[in-house]
């Protein structure tokens, strides 16, 4: 037993010596610390940072179709969408989009449900601000430029959205259901030039996904916003927001269905439990017609 004890003592000395040597040798390794404000480390593209709304990198049209999926799914209820139905085209038109980054927990659920990959997490994490109010980003601050969108589409390996056709065929509606899934499956088609957007039927089935009407001469995303402003008067009527709070839990269960669902037929299909929402959507439904396009003022 005595020799065992001595053996163990030597063993432990050896171990401690090894440990000390290892730690000492660490001092010859280059520090892994980044002195943050001086050097910013490369952040992975899938980092879940500040939320933003992307535009079509090729045409610059805004990708949001005001479907409110993100608003419903958000566990923190920090997204607030103001949209209205354009009287001319019977399509939903985005008026304002607010995200309270003070509430957001960057779970990324909204980016997953978005049928048009419009809302995305960016790499930006430097959002410190002086007031809580300034953490509420509005449409202008959320919308990315064309170049930024291109970067994120590239970095996140997302299929590029097809530009919207100016006048999709009414019959395209059922086929358009494949939009998100189809876009993923066929990324080759994603690089469609603006001119191609004018192609009818077959192309339109895929292209129905982008939320905004294709303008061959793509206006920048910013231009889209002021254009929506004059129509703001109709906003209250369209605003189904209060109802959505109640509808949210059910919605999360319907997400899978939605991702393969038809974007254009969405209002009718959505099995929302909340009567208010249903009603609001019913009212939209007849006007909405077969296409998801929204007229730009």
């Amino acid at each position: 037993m005595g020799s065992n004890l001595i053996g163990r003592a030597f063993e432990s000395f050896k171990r401690i010596g090894e440990g000390l040597r290892t730690v000492l040798m660490h001092s010859f390794r280059e520090p892994i610390t980044k002195t943050y404000p001086d050097t910013v480390s490369q952040i992975a593209p899938h980092f879940r940072g500040r939320l933003a709304l992307s535009v079509n990198p090729d045409t610059g049209e805004h990708l949001c179709i005001s479907c409110r999926q993100c608003e419903r799914v958000c566990p923190d209820k920090c997204i607030e969408i103001t949209a209205h139905k354009s009287p001319e085209t019977n399509k939903l038109e985005l008026i304002d989009f607010k995200i309270d980054h003070g509430l957001c927990m960057f779970c990324g659920l909204c980016t997953e449900v978005c049928p048009t990959t419009c809302i995305i997490n960016t790499n930006d994490f430097e959002m410190a601000d002086y007031t809580r109010e300034s953490l509420v980003y509005d449409l202008r601050r959320l919308t990315l430029t064309q170049e930024e969108s291109a970067f994120y589409f590239e970095a996140k390996d997302m299929p590029k959205p097809k530009p919207k056709p100016p006048k999709p065929a009414p019959g395209a509606a059922p086929a358009a259901g494949a939009a998100p899934a189809g876009a993923k499956a066929a990324p080759v088609g994603a690089k469609a030039a603006p001119a191609e957007g004018a192609k009818p039927a077959a192309a339109a089935a895929d292209a129905a996904k982008p939320a905004e009407s294709a303008k061959p001469a793509a206006a920048p995303a910013e231009a889209a916003k002021p254009a929506a402003a004059p129509l703001e008067a109709t906003k209250p009527a369209e605003d189904a927001k209060p109802a959505e709070a109640a509808a949210k839990p059910q919605d999360s269960s319907t997400e899978p269905a939605k991702t393969v669902g038809d974007t254009t037929a969405k209002p009718e299909e959505k099995p929302t439990a909340s009567p208010e929402v249903k009603e609001a959507e019913k009212e939209k439904a007849p006007e909405q017609g077969a296409d998801a396009d929204k007229k730009e003022g």
Binding site: V23, L24, H26, S27, R29, E30, P31, I32, T33, T35
Partner: peptide, 13 residues
């Protein structure tokens, strides 16, 4: 600073 060296950090700087 010495601990920072051992733990492959920079330490207060």
């Amino acid at each position: 600073r010495a601990l920072a060296l051992f733990t492959v950090r920079l330490g207060p700087n």
